[in-house]
Design a protein around this nucleic acid. Sequence first.
DNA 1: GAATAGATTGTCT
DNA 2: GACAATCTATTCT
Length: 206
Amino acid sequence: MSGALAETLAPLSKDFFSQGVVALARALVGKVLVHESAAGLTAGRIVETEAYRGPDDLGAHSAGGRRTPRVAAMWGEAGHAYVYFIYGMHWAFNVVAGDTSEPHAVLVRAVEPLLGIELMAQRRKLPPNDRDLTNGPGKLCKAMGIDKALYGVPLFEPPLFVAAGERRAQLRSGPRINIDYAGEWAKKPWRFWERGNPWVSVKPRD
DNA sequence: GAATAGATTGTCT
DNA sequence: GACAATCTATTCT
């Protein structure tokens, strides 16, 4: 990939994030996530997202109005990062949506590597052409160097930001992954992905 | 390819 | 003390 591409990666404006959480989850598919870390630049095209709509949504960490230190970012301004640690070893990255009275967020579940692929491979200890590089929430965080240090940072300016990008295939939707405990809420079709994209995590029926 | 179990720790009850 | 918006290795078929 060329330096020319890197130069086209400018942050979207703050306004982009001011839309409903489900609309934002849809809009983010095809956009590019960029991280300018000390180790180097990585960028990936977002191909899979999920919307979490607390306090009503029982699948959300903010369910029932829960407002603990961990979920504080969900109660913050739209367009900031909500990063959490899960299963004792993985980080997951979310884009906060809604205003400060609405604890909403969009989980980014998979990206397609665009830039800094060698660095991603190094961080993941995998070959650069490996499909497992970024096809899952924990995997993409590891590959792109996203962890607690980026908790709450704005996503409309460096070092971590969302840039313009195009969808290359039809947008599909289905139930969210691994929230069976959420009852009826688990059935909502708030998972979105780009049809047929090989980087999507848990294989959907496209 | 599918199913299963084990890893490992921050967070909340 | 229980569990989690997951990943990996292993063991099947």
